[in-house]
């Protein structure tokens, strides 16, 4: 069986962090899609530096994706199973048998 049955605390932390950041982004993305689908006129509203909500929110989603990705990259903990290259190979081979 695979190693995910007994994940290390580091891996569990990474998974929870990933899901937490995913939910934040999902909320923002859902907001964007719902405004477009049900209140498309709102997207014409000028909100910042003469730019409308469609451009600001759209660019914002792209930039925010990178910000969250960097936060995730900085906060993730290294899984001890990855410290040796052979450890990973062994884990993978164990999985497939």
């Amino acid at each position: 069986m695979n190693t995910s049955d007994s994940p290390s605390p580091q891996r569990r932390f990474n998974t929870r962090l990933g899901l937490f950041l995913f939910l934040i982004y999902l909320t923002l993305y859902t907001g964007f899609v719902l405004i477009n689908a049900f209140a498309a006129d709102k997207m014409e509203t000028i909100v910042l530096a003469g730019l409308n909500l469609a451009i600001v929110y759209g660019f914002g989603l792209i930039v925010f994706a990178l910000v969250l990705a960097l936060i995730y990259g900085l906060m993730c903990r290294r899984d001890p199973a990855e410290n040796t290259e052979t450890g990973e190979v062994a884990a993978v081979q164990g999985d497939s048998k």
Partner: peptide, 11 residues
């Protein structure tokens, strides 16, 4: 297309 990468990275 870009938002999809969030699923790829975090999940």
């Amino acid at each position: 297309f870009l938002a999809g990468w969030i699923v790829a990275l975090f999940v």
